[in-house]
Design a protein around this nucleic acid. Structure first.
Ligand SMILES: [Zn+2]
Ligand SMILES: [Zn+2]
Ligand SMILES: [Zn+2]
Ligand SMILES: [Zn+2]
Lengths: 169, 169
DNA sequence: ATCTGTAATGTAATACTATATCAACCCGCA
DNA sequence: TGCGGGTTGATATAGTATTACATTACAGAT
């Protein structure tokens, strides 16, 4: 039931909450939450992982919502620039935001073994990175932070494997 | 004469130092610093900014060193995986490392107005980001950190412009 | 001196990611 | 009723990266 960490959670609630939040936010800001935009956010929320633009496009095409790249890219651009989704630069992929409405610089953790991508639930304090930039006289507006490593699940299964060395080696 | 910040520096010395360091490092680690690899590093060092793989390829092609994408990508892969260069994910571009031999997770600052990319000279301490990851049970191996903002030069010229409001507005 | 395995290259073709462009459309509004 | 902005549809194209396979270069073993 936790928000969206590496643990499991109530996924359908997670989807509907996020959709409702997006809807409200769009109404407030006079943004048009059109059919394609809504559907793309749904797809991202449903999969709950990073998807390539063409993965999304394939789903849309299967539903008759558009088959050309600009359809997907336009919707993604809308979602990203309004904070409902993020782009994972390292993967050229997109993922629904886990902290919508919080105006944050996202921090992602990408698992090398299972490719799971999780957005950190803790907002990174502006300390060290800002200091490094200040040393260089640079004004930071936004930052891409993407960590690669091993997620809890994969670490556990790796540990288990090394405990029991009977795996055909 | 400073290393490679936003300030100016002795560029030819900067190039030859870095090349010599790479050469030494390759000798020590039994790596083949071949003609193409060396040339690509030279190009990156010479330009001293982020270059796309196809920019590099164009130079190589002009010199008869190879005209097909894999030529550039192989050399870049070698340079990146041995720490002589980095990829800027946000730009799909490559840049020579400013801190070769230091085994660091690079931090880049990308200027929105002039597209200059500078690698921070301060190595980021492992504090906050590691803490955020630990909260999620995630083991970080590497991290991509790319900050977008305004470099000192562009900030100054912007300030000057707003001081003297006679620029056709 | 020849063999052999590995790393590096050469080359072509293709896959994947993203944008440019322009006409048509819809909707809120003067 | 007509205008203007944002959205959409459709085609084309640009930009980035990989696969595949043939070939060459070279170090170490025979
Ligand atoms: Zn987010
Ligand atoms: Zn994992
Ligand atoms: Zn570096
Ligand atoms: Zn600048």
């Amino acid at each position: 039931m936790t928000a969206t960490g590496f643990e499991t959670h109530d996924h359908s609630a997670c989807i509907s909450t996020a959709l409702a939040a997006a809807e409200t936010c769009c109404t407030e800001h006079r943004l048009q939450f059109t059919k394609v935009r809504r559907r793309v956010l749904e797809i991202l929320l449903h999969e709950h992982r990073a998807l390539g633009a063409y993965d999304i496009l394939a789903v849309l095409a299967g539903e008759g919502l558009g088959a050309q790249p600009p359809v997907a890219y336009r919707a993604l651009e809308f979602l990203v620039s309004n904070g409902f989704a993020h782009k994972i630069e390292k993967l050229n992929a997109y993922i629904a935001c886990s902290l919508p409405g919080q105006d944050h610089s996202p921090v992602f953790m990408i698992c090398r073994s299972c490719q799971t991508v999780v957005e950190a639930q803790t907002v990174l304090p502006a300390g060290q990175l800002a200091q490094v930039a200040r040393d260089a006289g640079f004004d930071i507006e936004r930052a891409v932070i993407e960590a690669e490593g091993t997620c809890p699940a994969c670490r556990n299964s790796k540990d288990a494997a090394s405990d029991a060395p009977g795996t055909k080696a």
